[in-house]
Simulated assay, not measured.
Amino acid sequence: MSDSPPRFSMIEPDAKAPTLKRLRQLSRLLDNIITIPGTKIGFGLDPIIGLIPIGGDFLGVMFSSYIILEAARLGVSRATLGKMVLNVIIDGLVGTVPVLGDLFDFAWKANINNIKLLEDYLRFPSQQKSADRWFIFTVLVGLLLISILLVALPLILIRILWNALTGG
């Protein structure tokens, strides 16, 4: 009678609250742990990690990917996961631009945005299909490839710049 068996979260309902709490703490740590006194402006470890040459943006994407993986385990839809991945891609790619990327990291809170998407989905679950294991695997491989690109791109640009300056 039914087309396919219903899809359920890979995390038991009783474990959702602690998982969500842990993800909130991680997103706060990455995006908003420090508030500038006298302002509402905050930042976290993500822009600080982003200052590490070459590998900083890679690490930032890896931490953000963990939040996406856990959201998938909570049964979030493909559409919501796609939005979450887009937030991380924007954060990672703009983060590779020297100075501008570092300033952007202070304003763009990809992890906090992703937690809001997760909370909205859990509060009002849609009838959209949950992500299956292959979709999740594809998303994580894609994020890994983007992370590798974030390491390779600055190295390529440095080499081009070096060759232009030295005439080599």
Results as ranks from 00 to 15, higher is better:
65 S>E: 00
27 S>K: 03
17 A>V: 06
73 R>A: 11
23 L>W: 01
114 N>E: 08
18 P>L: 06
92 G>S: 15
46 D>E: 12
134 W>S: 14
56 G>R: 00
152 A>Q: 10
32 N>F: 12
43 F>G: 01
138 T>C: 07
83 K>H: 11
101 G>L: 03
30 L>H: 01
127 Q>V: 14
150 L>Y: 05
144 L>S: 09
54 I>C: 08
108 W>M: 08
56 G>L: 01
135 F>C: 02
137 F>T: 15
163 N>T: 09
96 T>C: 11
83 K>V: 03
79 A>C: 03
51 L>M: 15
116 K>P: 01
68 I>W: 01
42 G>M: 09
139 V>I: 13
114 N>L: 08
132 D>K: 14
116 K>Y: 09
63 F>N: 04
35 T>R: 13
70 E>M: 15
88 V>S: 04
54 I>A: 08
124 F>N: 14
58 F>R: 00
50 G>T: 09
42 G>T: 11
23 L>C: 00
161 L>W: 12
80 T>M: 08
113 N>R: 14
163 N>C: 10
128 Q>Y: 09
161 L>T: 10
62 M>K: 10
146 I>A: 14
108 W>E: 08
5 P>W: 04
66 Y>A: 02
86 L>E: 09
9 S>Y: 02
65 S>C: 05
52 I>P: 08
25 Q>L: 11
60 G>P: 05
123 R>D: 14
55 G>V: 15
72 A>E: 02
63 F>T: 06
48 I>V: 15
140 L>G: 07
67 I>Y: 05
88 V>Y: 02
117 L>H: 08
34 I>F: 15
28 R>W: 11
27 S>N: 05
163 N>V: 09
121 Y>P: 01
166 T>E: 11
159 R>C: 05
134 W>T: 15
139 V>F: 03
74 L>N: 07
154 P>L: 10
54 I>G: 01
36 I>D: 04
105 D>Q: 12
86 L>Y: 04
33 I>G: 02
7 R>T: 09
161 L>P: 00
126 S>C: 12
142 G>M: 11
53 P>E: 10
90 I>Y: 03
139 V>K: 01
123 R>C: 11
134 W>H: 12
138 T>K: 15
34 I>Y: 14
153 L>G: 00
15 A>Q: 07
120 D>E: 15
83 K>W: 09
11 I>W: 01
15 A>V: 05
8 F>E: 07
76 V>F: 06
109 K>G: 05
35 T>P: 03
4 S>W: 03
49 I>V: 15
81 L>V: 08
91 D>P: 00
86 L>D: 06
87 N>D: 13
73 R>K: 15
9 S>K: 02
159 R>P: 00
128 Q>G: 11
117 L>F: 14
87 N>H: 12
141 V>E: 10
105 D>R: 14
4 S>D: 07
121 Y>K: 07
117 L>P: 02
13 P>Q: 06
129 K>V: 12
157 L>I: 13
47 P>E: 06
